Computed example of a mutant assay.
Amino acid sequence: MALADEIKKHAVEALKIEAQSIENLISFIDDDFTNAVELILNSKGRVVITGIGKSAIVAQKIVATLNSTGTPSIFMHAADAIHGDLGNIQQDDVVICISKSGNTPEIKVLVPLVKSFNNKLIAITGNTESVLGKQADYILNTYVETEACPNNLAPTSSTTAQMAMGDALAVCLLNQRGFTSKDFAKYHPGGSLGKKLYLRVADVFINNAKPQVSANQKLSEVIIEISSKRLGITAVVENETLLGVVTDGDLRRMLEKNQDITTLTAKDIMSASPKTIKPDTLAIEALHIMENNNITQLLVAENNIYLGVIHLHDLLKEGII
Rank of each mutant, 00 (worst) to 15 (best):
Q90K: 15
G87P: 09
I82V: 14
Q90G: 14
P72E: 12
P105Q: 13
T104F: 03
T71H: 09
V94G: 04
I96L: 12
L113G: 06
L121E: 00
A56I: 03
F75C: 05
D93L: 04
I107L: 04
L121K: 00
I89M: 03
V109L: 15
I122M: 06
S99T: 07
H77C: 10
P72M: 12
S73C: 11
M76Q: 11
A56N: 03
A56R: 01
L110V: 03
Q90V: 12
Q60S: 15
A64M: 10
H83W: 03
S116P: 07
K54F: 08
I57M: 15
K61V: 12
N67L: 12
F75K: 04
L113D: 08
D85G: 04
F117T: 15
P105V: 13
I74M: 14
M76K: 11
L66Y: 05
A64C: 13
V111D: 00
Q60T: 14
E106G: 03
S116G: 08
V95S: 00
V111S: 01
V111M: 02
A64E: 06
V109G: 09
N88H: 15
D80P: 02
T104G: 05
L113K: 13
G102R: 01
G84S: 09
I57N: 13
L66Q: 06
Q91D: 15
Q90E: 14
N118Q: 15
S99G: 09
P105N: 14
L113I: 14
T71R: 09
M76N: 10
K108T: 14
A78T: 06
K115L: 07
T65A: 08
Q60L: 14
V58E: 03
D85V: 06
P112H: 05
I57F: 14
D80V: 05
V114Y: 00
E106S: 06
F75V: 07
D93N: 11
S99Y: 01
I107F: 01
I98W: 01
A64N: 11
F117P: 10
P72A: 11
P112D: 08
V58W: 03
V111R: 00
S99N: 06
D92M: 11
S99C: 07
I98N: 02
I122W: 02
I96C: 05
S55A: 13
I96Q: 02
S55K: 10
S55P: 05
I82D: 01
S73W: 02
N103C: 09
A64P: 06
A79T: 15
K61C: 12
F75R: 04
I57Y: 15
I122T: 02
V58A: 09
Q60D: 13
L110H: 02
H83A: 04
M76V: 15
K100Y: 13
T71K: 09
V114A: 01
V58N: 05
I122Q: 02
I57C: 13
I62L: 11
A81V: 04
L86Y: 05
A81Q: 00
S55W: 07
S55F: 09
A79S: 15
I98C: 06
I57R: 10
S68Y: 07
V95R: 00
K54W: 08
P112N: 07
